[in-house]
Design a protein around this nucleic acid. Structure first.
Lengths: 248, 248
DNA sequence: TCGAAAAGGTGACAAATATCATATATATTT
DNA sequence: AAATATATATGATATTTGTCACCTTTTCGA
């Protein structure tokens, strides 16, 4: 009997301490996405209905064609959102990072996902059931507007990607990809990019064959634009890389 | 006295008949875009503040980098939305047709336009000042949600474009472009596409050189997939064209 | 309706990129 | 630590696509 009581207390205190970290109301990540426009009340609803999930590197989060019953809020790690083309190659359309919400489009448009999501490194996600999202979308115009604002931004970025892919050479796009990786994920103390992507992933981001990608990275290393150490890659000459990307 | 009364009646009836055509409340076009989620009151506001504009083929509606003070609702005609790449070529990102609203993103994100819009054929547009739109966005969740839904759809389409451009050959993309033109704009009684684009425009849609585009269209004509009469082009063998686009 | 300008068309060639084959290095499993 | 799988690397070659030059046809304004 004593044991039982003790166990309950332990359980409760564990729950409490978890909650102050894991409650949406206290989550800092939220500041970077549309959830910041939610009211205290709405956030409580989200928090009560959400579940946390961990994914190992390489694990699938959802698949193309799958029906999503909610959205995923990225707490940690990076996910690649890609689409399979008819010739069997994956095209990475977007990298989703800490703070971003995945799967919104499916929930909003009530369609199956047009993309699949795979963890690039180990990830922590919160899964929020769609009912809460849709409910808030219909009740809180500020939230809806915030989602809209972010989606407008995504669409603008998509336009840029279209223009880049169709008008720039593979070399330019790869140079650009490295500048993107640096400015979005930064570099460590030794000047290596924090986010390490495989050559294949980089190829799938810029839309080229893996071999072509490897070849160009080798060339960049020979020319002193990039350095490598193990799997890690680092930028040595950002200025030249930028000039290359712009087409000089 | 009798004459005056009569004239007033005539005038009123004339106004009435004009308004029933040009008032947003009665506009059928609206059914195809986000404005259908507006209330009677909101539509009146829009109607009172909107201005109608005509554009001739080839005329610019707005330019890349321009700040838009409102949105354009397409009543008739087609507009190409394009972006200039650093190498000096235009990439057409979208064709906007009857019922679609252009310039929403700029108004929502309060940014300058990332695209420029040019009339492909003669156009009739309604210009709606941004104040009315923003006002409604903040007050009417249904409207905001509707805009969001349509933007989610646009984003999905943009993803598809990215995958197509980066993974399919020019020939496949041109085949696809013709299928798109047929399914979206239809064909006339003689089997010619209703929307006639120049070879250069088609090249800018699929992201290739004008010469390559011309060459492939010639090839398609020789192979009996397309026919032409003057500027008009028509699809002769949709099945083969579809197979080609899919990569068989 | 004439003449310039724009659009459409084609050949020759160069450049970019993909593909295939094969080798080596690195990571992972047992 | 050996065995296996996976990622990276590189050469040879084929294919695709772009570029330049030039020509013909159509369009459109004076």
């Amino acid at each position: 009997m004593i044991f039982v009581t003790f166990s309950i207390i332990l359980h409760k205190s564990k729950l409490k301490s978890m909650s102050s970290e894991s409650r949406c109301e206290n989550c800092i990540i939220r500041q970077f996405n549309s959830l910041r426009a939610m009211s205290k009340e709405e956030l409580k609803q989200v928090s009560d209905s959400k579940t946390s999930k961990s994914y190992k590197r390489g694990e699938a989060i959802f698949e193309e064609g799958e029906k999503l019953n909610g959205v995923f809020c990225v707490r940690d790690g990076v996910s690649k959102l890609s689409k399979l083309s008819s010739n069997g190659k994956d095209q990475i359309v977007k990298l989703a990072t800490k703070g971003e919400v995945m799967g919104q489009r499916c929930v909003i448009a009530e369609e199956t996902s047009n993309l699949s999501a795979v963890a690039v490194n180990d990830m922590e996600l919160c899964f929020i059931p769609k009912e809460v999202i849709i409910n808030t979308l219909h009740k809180n115009p500020d939230f809806t507007f915030e989602v809209l604002r972010l989606m407008a931004h995504d669409l603008r970025e998509a336009d840029d990607v279209i223009v880049n892919i169709s008008q720039k050479t593979v070399k330019q796009r790869i140079a650009e990809a490295f500048l993107y990786l640096k400015s979005n994920y930064g570099e460590d103390a030794d000047g290596y990019l924090v986010l390490t992507l495989s050559r294949e992933d980089i190829a799938n981001v810029v839309g080229t064959a893996t071999e072509s990608c490897i070849r160009i990275i080798s060339e960049f290393k020979k020319k002193g634009l990039l350095k490598s150490s193990g799997k890690k890659l680092g930028i040595l000459d950002e200025k030249k890389l930028r000039e290359l990307a712009e087409g000089f």
